[in-house]
């Protein structure tokens, strides 16, 4: 099971980083989404894996539970990463609508940065 989780985290990270390094906003956003998946699972896994041991206290005597703390942290992280993605999407959208290009690098073709410089 550990191999499964570790390899999933690895593949998510690798794909995330590859996409984040692209030159357009949309793949970068996708990459960040994949990276946040990777980070969340990584954090979650730091509580070690357990099957059938949810951290919900049993009314029926002793039972063992998995580590609840990473879960609580990851829960908020998931929601926050949604907020971050949303802000990023809006910024990318605003930039695209304004500049007519969704290139992430300044001075890249079509961003309008060179035109403005030429104007001024």
């Amino acid at each position: 099971m550990e191999v499964v989780v570790a390899s999933a985290v690895g593949v998510l990270t690798a794909s995330g980083i590859y996409l984040v390094l692209r030159l357009r906003a949309f793949p970068v956003i996708l990459g960040l989404a994949l990276l946040s998946y990777a980070a969340n699972v990584f954090l979650f896994a730091s509580g070690r894996l357990a099957i059938n041991m949810p951290p919900v206290l049993s009314k029926y005597g002793e039972a063992s539970y998995t580590d609840p703390l990473p879960q609580a942290l990851v829960l908020t992280a998931i929601v926050i990463s949604f907020g971050m993605t949303a802000v990023l999407v809006m910024v990318a959208l605003a930039a695209y609508l304004k500049a007519g290009s969704d290139a992430v690098n300044m001075g890249a073709p079509g961003t309008g940065a060179e035109d403005e410089e030429a104007d001024s």
């Binding site: 985290v9 690895g10 690798a14 995330g16 590859y18």
Partner: peptide, 15 residues
């Protein structure tokens, strides 16, 4: 290459 190396590193660490 950067992505693959990073992915490998993170996977190894997690494992």
């Amino acid at each position: 290459a950067i992505a693959a190396a990073s992915g490998l590193g993170v996977a190894a660490l997690a494992y």
